[in-house]
């Protein structure tokens, strides 16, 4: 660094810019330390956020991905757990996608799980269920857990996720185990939400998936039933309560 007169802000931003963008391989040993620290921390944090992906692609590939991601998505919150949202998009545009197209969906699945697993759980307001008896269904709306997210995939991402999560970090699933998962038919619709005790992943069918989308779009119970007349609302609400998906009716 040079210049005693540059402002504190200028010095600090200039130093950050050097760490993120300047090639230090030929010179500054100190800068190299900061750059190595940044890249190692980024890779470790990405491995924590995407443990299944890390098992699938290995340490070298995670290092390269984290290096590229630092150029696409600057960490800004001070909490590495908030960094990495753009990894699925980065994989989609990488050379990995041609040979392993399921990796994008695995990464998306893991990001959603990561967010849900850090979210606060909201217990059901049981008294609000009384609205189903007392109020018109046109005026009754279901509120889902804020952490609840749903996603689709044409690959058996839940099976792949479970298989890898059941292994230790060093273990790699056998070819037979992977074939079994890939040949297992999944619905392709998944709901991930924070529960009272764990973060839950539930495979659902198309009709339930669309029902949940309708709730998220702000439709009343009456409107939902108009759109999905064959949907068994009574059975669903009992199951949704058991799954910790609902916080209240309003």
């Amino acid at each position: 660094m040079s210049g005693g007169n540059i402002s504190v802000m200028d010095y600090q931003s200039q130093f950050l810019n050097e760490i993120y963008h300047v090639d230090s391989t030929l010179g500054d040993k100190g800068l190299q330390v900061y750059q190595n620290n940044l890249h190692m921390t980024a890779m470790l944090s990405l491995t924590v956020t995407y443990p299944v992906l890390a098992q699938m692609v290995g340490e070298q590939a995670m290092f390269v991905l984290s290096h590229r991601l630092l150029r696409a998505e600057l960490p800004e919150s001070g909490d590495w757990a908030d960094w990495g949202q753009q990894l699925p998009a980065l994989i989609r545009n990488s050379e990995l996608n041609a040979e392993h197209p399921y990796l994008v969906d695995i990464a998306q699945f893991e990001w959603v799980f990561h967010l849900a697993s850090r979210s606060q759980f909201h217990a059901l307001n049981s008294a609000s269920l009384q609205r189903l008896a007392d109020e018109a269904l046109e005026q009754t709306f279901i509120t889902l857990q804020p952490s609840l997210k749903y996603l689709r995939s044409s690959y058996p991402v839940h099976g792949l996720w479970r298989l890898h999560r059941s292994q230790t970090e060093q273990e790699v699933p056998s070819r037979q185990q992977l074939e079994n998962v890939m040949n297992h038919q999944e619905t392709g619709c998944y709901v991930i939400a924070q529960g009272a005790h764990n973060t839950n992943i539930v495979e659902v069918y198309e009709d339930e998936f669309n029902w949940l989308r309708g709730i998220s779009d702000g439709l009343s119970v009456a409107a939902l039933l108009d759109i999905f007349p064959a949907f068994d609302f009574a059975a669903w609400i009992a199951s949704a309560i058991q799954r910790d998906w609902i916080t209240h009716l309003e």
């Binding site: 802000m9 600090q12 931003s13 130093f15 950050l16 810019n17 760490i19 993120y20 963008h21 900061y34 620290n37 940044l38 921390t41 980024a42 600057l74 960490p75 800004e76 919150s77 001070g78 590495w80």
Partner: peptide
């Protein structure tokens, strides 16, 4: 320090600078 700007975008260093 940890926070600064790069190209007018906020950034965290991820390290103790």
């Amino acid at each position: 320090f940890t926070w600064g700007n790069i190209d007018d975008m906020p950034v965290h260093a991820g390290d103790l600078l």
